[in-house]
Amino acid sequence: MYRFLIRRILGAVVILLIISAVTFFLFFAIPRDPARLACGKLCTPESLEIVRHNMGIDEPVFLQYWHWLTAIFTGRDFTYGHCDAPCLGYSFVNQEPIFNAIVDRFPTTLSLTIGAAVVFLFFGVGAGMVAAARQGRALDKIASSASLLGASMQIYFVGVLATWILVDQTQILQRPTYHDFTANPVAWASGLLLPWLVLSIIFTANYTRMTRSSMVEQLSEDYVRTARAKGMSTRTVFLRFAWRGSMGPIVTIFGVDLGVLLGGAIITEQTFSLHGIGELSIKAVENQDLPMLLGVVLVSATAIVLFNIVVDAVYAFIDPRVRLN
C-alpha cells in the first residue's frame, strides 16, 4: 500500500511538471507580449526593454522556466518585490505573488466545494438508493424525473432564480458572502448556504442517476443472487452486497468532481460574486495575466491529480481485487 502510494505520488509530481512545462511554453507561443501591455501606451523601446527585464521575460524561455521552477523552492526577487518560497511567480497586474493570491482565494473555493459535496453526496446517493430499492414504483419514478429535470438545469439560471426568490423576495436566505470558518462557523455556513444548494442541484441529479443505475446493475449480479439464495434479508442484500459493489464507480466520479470543483467552480463563483479560485482564473484571462493563469492551471491540475490518487487508494480499500494485485 505504501509503495503504491509513493509510486503514485512520484507519478503525480512528474505529471505536474509536464503540465507546468506545457502551459509555460504554450503561453510563450502566444504572440501577445505581456511586457507591451504592462508598458502602456507611451512605450519607448527602451522602457519596453526595462519592463521585460523586470518581468523576467527577456531571458530564453528554457531559462525562464528553470527560474520559475526553482523559485517554488527558493523564492525569488522581482524588481517589484520579493516573492517567498513557494513562489509560483508574480502577478504584475495584481502586484502580488501568485501564491498569496491563491492562498487568499482558496478557502472560499474549498468551503464551496466541501459544503456542496456533502449536500449532493447525501441527497444524490440517498435518492439513488431509494430509487433502486423501489425500482419501477412511484418513488423511483419521482426520483428519476426529478433528477432528469435537475440534470438539465444550468447553474446561472437556477442561481439567479434562487437568489431572486430566496433572497430578494422572501429574505429566507442571506445574500452569499464568504466568512472565515474559524472566526464564525455559523456565518460561514449561512453565507454559503445558497451557493451550496444551487451547486448541489445539478450534482445531486447526476449522483441520483448514477447511484440508481449502478445499484440496479449490481442487483442483477450473480453474487447478489447468491446472497439471496443463502437467506440474507432484502436489507442486507441491498446494503452489504449491492451497495458495496456500487461504491466503486461513485467514488471514481466523486474524486473527479471534487478535483474539478477545487480548481474553481467558475460559473458558481461568478453567479454569486464569490471570490474564489474560479474568479481568479477568469480575471487572469481577462487581464492576460499569464503568471497568474499558469498558477491557477497548476492549482487545478494539482487538485485533480491529488484526488485521483485518493480515489485509487479508496478504490483499493473497497475492492480487494485491486488491493492485492
Partner: peptide
C-alpha cells in the same frame, strides 16, 4: 428467508461471479 441457505442451499454454475468479490 429462513429456509434458504439453511434447509435448502444452492450452488451456481460460475463460482467466480457467484461469490462476492468484496
Amino acid at each position: 428467508e429462513r429456509l434458504r441457505g439453511n434447509k435448502v442451499a444452492m450452488i451456481f454454475q460460475d463460482p467466480l461471479t457467484s461469490l462476492s468479490p468484496y
